[in-house]
Design a protein around this nucleic acid. Structure first.
Length: 484
RNA sequence: GGGAGUGUAGCUCAGCUGGUAGAGCAACGCCCUUUUAAGGCGUAGGUCUUGGGUUCGAGUCCCAACACUCUCACCA
């Protein structure tokens, strides 16, 4: 054991003293534990300074986050996943366990059993008749008032962050609840949840650089998936009319406030639907979540006020381009001129790529309230069905909220001949392409895939919006950091 | 990868135009049976991220490295 830290040494000495008392410092199974929040609500009727009149013994367990030793009486604040509850330990009552009580310190995990009561100031308190050591803490916890503020340590040692900063615990509980609600929402609409390969021989379904890994006994390189799309659509071919998957995607790109190399994506597919139905579904689902998890339909996100009132804006890509860049999408000269003014490199770039870069540079920063950007240039959408009357546009939308792309959806292309052609088409000036040939996927389409709508929602970003988190790292338990 | 900022005690932070390290919490000792960030008295705690350089002298100025934050680029 390293003895570099004096505080740690002192705690090791306490550990030894606990053992000398004949107490196991690392405890064991414990039955009958009630959560702090349960105990709090149980105590609502107890008068100040009184005890529960049923005389029953209750048990709480958790980490000591505050400790006030006032001589022959010790008050401890125990924290568990649900909240906190106070333990009162009196020398008179606890008897022969008093020496153990005096050894307790911040960070230790203990349980206490006794009668539930309230102090004369009203604090819900278990008056301990017995305490049990469950885990001796050998490291000094962070400062009790400010908590742990260093974001580097918070992310690297989330196991401390979660109990040192209760709002962090609340956020991740909320994340769990939201995802459970999304599953419930989709199952109510008869979607099946499935899991498709994370390791793929062709990394398709999105435009992104993949991570590469290797399977030893097959001696085969594999890609971590950048999207589940092509597998989920194979399931449409297989007859699963409504499927969804909530799982990780991996993209080998830069990190930012909105990007983590592994992130959680919801993708769903609904046979016989189209992108209009996907818009309704996305709007309905997100509005339900806003209603449940936010106060009112206007929420603050990154110092912006975002208004979720329905109906959300639905604007054509070309119209938004015109509105914010002043360029007509069909006037490629004007587009290239504007792109030049803004100052990005565009030689050897396909027209569609320049248009899209101009769109990203001028339009996206204006999309604060939920906005469906619809009808993308078909060239940018190799997996999407084109509009019947305007074949140069695709039935695709992206949903923007708070200047951030949150969802992407389309009417799925189900013509194998067109799909095969799109896979072969490469746009000049694009580093990555969504059009990586996947012969087996084309083969699947040849069997016939029903017309369908598909929708992808970035779950981490959705959680950011619903919790007001400024960084994706605040909603991912263990975000990727460089090794120290 | 580019630019800007940050890195001081276990934690949260001060530290001026260079003069040799501070507070609060936590810890340790003593007192205290209704505290709420308990209180009182006392004690101890530092390779100032790392490595160079300038200087009589560097936490402070310069260079480099490492990590984090913001930002731009790539992307969802």
């Amino acid at each position: 054991m390293e003895d570099t830290n004096k505080l740690e040494q002192q705690r090791h000495e306490k550990l030894a003293r606990i053992k000398e008392l004949g107490v196991d410092p690392y405890g064991q199974r414990l039955d009958g534990v009630e959560s702090a929040s349960q105990l709090q609500s149980k105590a609502v009727d107890i008068p100040e300074g009184g005890k529960a009149d049923d005389g029953k013994i209750v048990i709480a367990a958790g980490r000591i986050v505050l400790l006030r030793d006032i001589g022959r009486l010790i008050f401890i604040t125990l924290r568990d996943c649900s909240g906190t509850v106070q333990i009162g330990i009196s020398k008179k009552v606890i008897g022969e366990q008093w020496p153990l009580a005096k050894l307790l310190e911040l960070g230790d995990i203990i349980s206490a059993s006794g009668q539930l009561g309230r102090t004369k100031t009203g604090e819900v308190t278990i008056w301990a008749e017995n305490i049990t050591m469950l885990s001796k803490s050998l490291l000094q916890p962070p400062e009790k008032f400010h908590g742990l503020a260093d974001v580097d340590i918070r992310y690297r040692q989330r196991y401390v962050d979660l109990w040192a900063n209760p709002e962090v615990m609340e956020l991740f509980k909320k994340r769990s609840d939201i995802i459970a609600d999304i599953r419930r929402f989709l199952r109510e609409r008869t979607f099946f949840e499935v899991e498709t390969p994370m390791m793929q021989t062709v990394a398709g379904g999105a435009a992104a650089k993949p991570f590469i890994t290797h399977h030893n006994s097959l001696n085969m390189d594999l890609f971590l998936r950048i999207a589940p799309e092509l597998f989920l659509k194979r399931l449409l071919v297989g007859g699963m009319d409504r499927v969804f998957e909530i799982n990780r995607n991996f993209r080998n790109e830069g990190l930012s406030r909105r990007h983590n190399p592994e992130f959680t994506m919801l993708e769903l597919y609904q046979a016989y639907a189209d992108y209009n139905i996907m818009m309704d579904l996305a709007e309905e689902m997100i509005c339900q979540l806003v209603e449940k998890y936010c106060e009112g339909s206007k929420i603050e996100f990154n110092k912006m006020e975002v208004d979720f009132s329905k109906p959300w804006r639905r604007e054509k890509y070309a119209d938004l381009l015109k509105e914010h860049s002043g360029c007509d999408i069909d006037d490629i000269k004007a587009v290239r001129q504007k792109a030049k003014e803004i100052g990005f490199e565009q030689k050897d770039m396909d027209d569609a790529v320049v248009i899209n870069k101009l769109f990203e540079a001028t339009v996206e920063e204006n999309l604060i309230n939920p906005t469906f950007v619809i009808d993308y240039p078909a060239k940018l959408c190799p997996l999407t069905k084109c509009k019947k009357d305007e074949p140069e546009y695709a039935e695709r939308f992206e949903l923007f909220i708070g200047k951030m792309e949150l969802a992407n959806a389309y009417t799925e292309l189900n013509d194998p001949a067109v799909q095969e052609k799109n896979f072969q088409l490469q746009l000049a000036g694009q580093d990555e392409t969504m059009a990586t040939m996947d012969a087996d996927f084309v083969n699947a389409l040849k069997y016939g895939m029903p017309p369908a709508g598909g929708l992808g929602i970035g779950i981490d970003r959705l959680i950011m919006i619903l919790t007001g988190a400024a960084s994706i790292r605040d909603v991912i338990l263990f975000p990727l950091l460089k090794q120290k």
